[in-house]
Structure formats: structure tokens, C-alpha cells
Computed example of a mutant assay.
Amino acid sequence: MKQILIAEDEPDIQELLCAYLEDAGYRTTVAGDGAQALAVFGGQPFDLVLLDLMLPGIDGFGVCEVIRRQSQVPILMLTALDGEESQLRGFGLDIDDYVTKPFSMPVLLEKIRVILRRRGLAGPESRLHYRDLSLDLDTREVLLAGRPLELTAREFELLHTFLAAPGRVFTREMLLARLWGYDFYGDERVVDSHIKNLRHKLGRNYIETVRGVGYRAAKADR
């Protein structure tokens, strides 16, 4: 399992990143400020660093400068600053990519996968199997009993979320944060609508409702 250092000071985003990345097959370690990030980085090897730019104390640029003196580990910057100057400064420090907040968790996961592959580092298994379903995370192909199944991007990410963590219950709030963005303020019923459409396409009950809580992948014997 690849180890990712998350240097981020906002607890909600820390929790979201950890949950999503761990479900995707990565191990995570969190640092809440620049000094802690450098201390943690110096104490163990990491395969990638998710680095918030606006960290307390030593900011992301400072952390990146120190890391680059000792390592060429992949660095993906996360920031609310979307100006060209900040991006150019980051790339000038030899970061691998730059993501502005709010960001899509599926897109972030794909960027991580691409960076690791580009660096020659094997990421988590790219094909996911569950009962007679098969998801290819690189090509986005879905096979149901060996036959291609056409899903929208959101439906694919919903199915991926459930099948990557069989048995785990996801509330509507969790699904909204992961797939629609942590700053989404719309109607939670959008989740129900997408799951209804997904169930219709699957034709069988692969996703079950946990009454009063949320949804999860249905048990294998159903």
C-alpha cells in the first residue's frame, strides 16, 4: 500500500481526504501545520505528499522547498489560491500538480493515480471486482456479468465508492462531500436520485438502503 502524507490544517478536509484515500487503497498520515509536516516527512518514507499551501507556521511553499532539498517525492499542492502567480511559483518548486479548492475527490484520486504511474510507482489495483461486477479504474469501463454497462461519471463514482468498501455504510452527507464536493450546499435528495438511476441500470440490488442512515454495497448472497 502506498503511503500518502496529507499536510492540511482544516479538520473536515483532513477527515474527507483520509477516508476517501484509504477506501481507494492508500495509507495516510496527517500533519496539521508546516513544522509537523516536515517532522513527519523526515521520520518515514512517503510515496506522495498532498500539500496545502496555506498551512499555519511554515506555509506550503516553505515545506515544499525543504522537501525538495532532500527528496523528489511526488507533491500535489492543494490550495484556495487559484491565481497564476501562485501556480507558477508552485511549479517553479518542482511540484507535480496543483489542485484548487473546492476540488472533486474523484478527480483528485485520478490525479494521484496518474502522478504515481508517471513516476513509475504502482498504485492500488486498477480493476475492482465485486460479485459479477468489474470496474476498471483506468479506463472507467464497467462490466456486468461480462457485458459493458454505460454509466455516467457520477454513477461510476458512486458504484466505485460502495464496492471499494463492501459493508461500510455511507450517509448522504458523506456521499455529497466525496462526490459533489465538501462545499456542496444543494439538496441531499440528489444522492437518492442518482442511486435510483444506478440501481435501474444494474438491474439487481447491488446497493442496499440502511434505513435512517444511508447506503452500502448489498451483501454477496442477495
Rank of each mutant, 00 (worst) to 15 (best):
A35V: 14
A35D: 13
A37F: 02
L38Y: 09
L38P: 08
A39K: 13
G42P: 09
G43D: 14
F46M: 05
V49D: 01
L51T: 00
L53E: 11
L53I: 04
M54L: 14
P56M: 08
D59Q: 04
F61D: 00
E65V: 07
V66I: 08
I67W: 05
R69E: 15
R69I: 02
Q70A: 10
Q72K: 15
V73T: 05
I75F: 07
L76F: 08
L76A: 05
M77R: 11
M77Y: 03
M77G: 07
M77H: 04
T79W: 02
L81A: 12
D82R: 09
D82C: 07
E84I: 15
S86D: 15
Q87V: 10
L93C: 10
D94V: 06
T100H: 09
F103M: 03
F103V: 04
F103C: 02
S104P: 00
S104H: 03
P106A: 07
P106E: 03
P106C: 02
L108C: 01
L108I: 05
L108T: 06
L108D: 05
E110F: 12
K111L: 12
I112Y: 06
V114Q: 15
I115M: 07
L116Q: 00
L116F: 07
R118G: 04
R119G: 11
L121R: 13
L121P: 04
A122T: 15
G123W: 09
P124F: 10
E125S: 15
L128P: 09
R131T: 01
D132E: 11
S134Y: 03
L135D: 08
L137R: 13
L137V: 05
L143A: 02
L143Q: 08
A145Q: 11
R147V: 07
R147D: 06
P148A: 09
P148V: 04
L149D: 10
L149T: 10
L151K: 05
L151V: 00
T152Y: 09
T152I: 03
A153T: 14
E155K: 04
F156A: 08
